[in-house]
Design a protein around this nucleic acid. Structure first.
Lengths: 121, 121
DNA sequence: GTAACGTGCAACCTCCGGGTTGCAGACGCT
DNA sequence: AGCGTCTGCAACCCGGAGGTTGCACGTTAC
């Protein structure tokens, strides 16, 4: 049923704290548990535990460098989740087109360079 | 921070049971709480409660017809979630291209016509 | 060597969300 | 009207997830 990797991704992203972590790591490029915990009202262990969960979901990747463990996002895991959403939506094609336009700001050639960073809130 | 509508969508989709409900409603086109509960090992009230949560997240829409309340999916709410994922991914553009190819089976010209309905399970 | 930093593991606590039971209110049918 | 069905609301139970404290191990700096 839903025991595939997609399930883990959704479950992992279901928590706002973990989402915040992913977002923060994505913004910094990479980060350690201690670094992330410094800017949060929680303990390092809590962050570490969440990072483990995210890693098991395939959303982040841990890499030990010396005495610290750096984490970086691995967006590949999101593909399955997106696909799931696409399957759920009935007439999605038009929406996907609109989404491309919306995200790329009108032209898909620029790509990452046109990436905008304005917060959604 | 993450108090936007996107947060609710992710939180709602974070539960496998709710995901299953969305999936089932999407497959049937529309359904009632009692109908859905019939094929599940849970009570009608449980389903109803989950449907309420999904409705608050904007993923489904309730509409009362006579004495029964039918639910149908509203995929529009997923856009924000997808956009969030896109923002998280750094070099996402190539992945998005690959995703389009993957989803549409190679050609995006057909659009809705190329939509596939084979279940993933 | 030893002190300081960063990490991982384990036990414990607490709270919230999913589920259930029970009941009362709508609506449809005859 | 009277009965059966579908629904919504409220109170309650319980397991698990997120968080914390405490400690031990590896690593870098002095």
């Amino acid at each position: 049923m839903g025991s595939g990797p997609v399930d883990r991704v959704f479950a992992a992203l279901g928590d706002s704290g973990r989402r915040e972590l992913v977002r923060e790591i994505s913004a910094r490029g990479s980060a350690t548990a201690t670094e992330l915990a410094a800017g949060l009202p929680v303990t390092r262990q809590a962050v570490s535990k969440q990072l483990t969960a995210l890693a098991e979901a395939g959303l982040v990747r841990s890499e030990r460098q010396g005495r610290e463990t750096r984490y970086e996002v691995t967006p590949a895991a999101l593909e399955g989740a997106v696909e799931w959403m696409v399957r759920v939506g009935a007439r999605w094609d038009e929406r996907l087109d609109a989404l491309e336009q919306h995200l790329s700001g009108g032209s898909r050639s620029g790509g990452a360079s046109a990436r905008r960073r304005e917060s959604s809130r």
